[in-house]
């Protein structure tokens, strides 16, 4: 199963470090999501159970206080954007439950690494390269455009490692 071709070629050493996510890599509902992140939700609950009541309140206050920064870190992509990616990914990798899981993991990873604006910039460049006729497409091959695409490719390379 293969994801983005250019990303396949880029070496993992070029991959940017992911922002540290405390509980798991799923965006949107970090406290409750299931998955294979570094500190999954069930672990969080286990820690909470072992914690004395008065400390649990303090932990909740800390967690909720950190929420807005969290949401920002997680670059909450609109559901339509994630669904669109999964559609494309499954068209390429198969209409199976397995592909769905991997493709969803892939876009969630990308969303955790790349702000939505950067994602849309890269997407626009790739789309215009494919489609803008003649010299109209020229500016989408400039070094600035290459940089925009590289950001996405690096996130995709990381997604490849984590999900495929």
């Amino acid at each position: 199963m293969r994801l983005q071709t250019p990303a396949n070629r880029s070496s993992p050493s070029h991959v940017r470090t992911a922002p540290i996510s405390v509980f798991c890599d799923c965006a949107g509902a970090p406290l409750f999501c299931q998955g294979t992140g570094r500190l999954p939700a069930d672990l969080f609950w286990r820690i909470m159970k072992m914690t004395p009541i008065f400390l649990r309140l303090a932990i909740w206050i800390a967690v909720l206080g950190a929420w807005p920064a969290f949401a920002e870190d997680q670059n909450d992509y609109p559901t339509a954007v994630r669904a669109e990616y999964v559609f494309a990914c499954m068209a390429s990798n198969g209409q199976t439950q397995d592909a769905l899981r991997r493709c969803a993991c892939s876009i969630d990873t990308i969303a955790s690494l790349l702000p939505i604006e950067s994602y849309q910039k890269a997407e626009t460049v790739l789309r215009m390269r494919r489609s803008a006729g003649g010299y109209l497409g020229e500016v989408f091959r400039s070094s600035l455009s290459n940089t925009m695409v590289r950001d996405l490719q690096e996130a995709e390379a990381e997604a490849e490692i984590r999900c495929f």
Partner: peptide, 29 residues
């Protein structure tokens, strides 16, 4: 322009030279 937005990503994803599975995927996409 370039069709559906996801195609930008899909273009790389479905490069006929990309390897296994990609060619069939290209048609599906």
């Amino acid at each position: 322009v370039g069709g559906w937005a996801g195609i930008g990503l899909a273009a790389g994803l479905t490069d006929p030279h990309a390897g296994l599975g990609a060619v069939g995927g290209y048609a599906a996409l």
